Computed example of a mutant assay.
Amino acid sequence: MTMCDITVPAPDGAASLARIGAVLGEAGVSLEGGGMWAEVAHYLVAEGDAAVRALESAGIRDVELRPTVIVPLDADVPGALGRIMTRLADAGVRLLAQYSDHDNRKVLVVDDPDAARAALA
């Protein structure tokens, strides 16, 4: 199963997230991780196309769908995130977003998923 990041405008904060959650819930799309920052929500979904269709059918525009790179993170090891990010930066990979999923892994939304996977292998 390929997990995707959906990026959704959320200009009204909690009200936007309530609507997004209701629309996706009604469509049977499960949110596997994510959050909201600066009026933009990012969510990890297995059913990316279904999520986009449901949101757009509900009148929610400017939804973006991107592949993700999901990596384990030793959260109890100081500097683990820094080492991952250094490898991406050294490989010239542009990070667009990062958050955690429900399995405590890092979800990376990047401009070049293949290059990111190679850098982190």
Rank of each mutant, 00 (worst) to 15 (best):
Met1Val: 14
Asp5Met: 02
Ile6Asn: 05
Thr7Arg: 07
Pro9Ser: 06
Ala14Val: 14
Ala15Thr: 08
Leu17Glu: 12
Arg19Ile: 03
Gly21Asn: 13
Ala22Tyr: 09
Val23Asn: 05
Val23Glu: 08
Gly25Val: 10
Glu26Trp: 01
Gly28Asn: 12
Gly34Leu: 02
Gly35Tyr: 11
Trp37His: 15
Trp37Gln: 15
Trp37Arg: 15
Ala38Pro: 00
Ala38Asp: 11
Glu39His: 14
Glu39Leu: 10
Val40Gly: 07
His42Ala: 12
Tyr43Met: 15
Leu44Asp: 11
Leu44Ser: 13
Val45Ala: 11
Ala46Met: 09
Ala46Tyr: 00
Glu47Asp: 14
Gly48Trp: 02
Gly48Ile: 01
Asp49Pro: 01
Asp49Tyr: 06
Asp49Met: 00
Asp49Asn: 03
Ala51Asn: 02
Ala51Thr: 06
Val52Pro: 08
Leu55Lys: 10
Glu56Cys: 01
Ser57Cys: 04
Ser57Gln: 15
Ser57Ile: 06
Ala58Ile: 08
Gly59Lys: 05
Ile60Pro: 02
Asp62Ile: 04
Asp62Val: 06
Val63Glu: 07
Val63Thr: 04
Val63Tyr: 08
Leu65Gln: 06
Leu65Cys: 13
Leu65Trp: 05
Arg66Asn: 10
Pro67Asp: 02
Thr68His: 03
Val69His: 08
Pro72Thr: 11
Leu73Asn: 09
Leu73Trp: 00
Asp74Met: 11
Asp76Cys: 02
Asp76Ile: 08
Pro78Asp: 10
Pro78Cys: 05
Gly79His: 07
Leu81Ile: 07
Gly82Gln: 05
Arg83Ile: 10
Ile84Leu: 15
Ile84Glu: 05
Thr86Glu: 13
Leu88Asn: 07
Asp90Trp: 03
Gly92Arg: 04
Val93Ile: 11
Leu96Val: 11
Leu96Tyr: 00
Ala97Asp: 04
Ala97Leu: 01
Tyr99Lys: 13
Ser100Gly: 13
His102Ile: 02
His102Ala: 03
His102Ser: 11
Asp103Gly: 07
Lys106Cys: 14
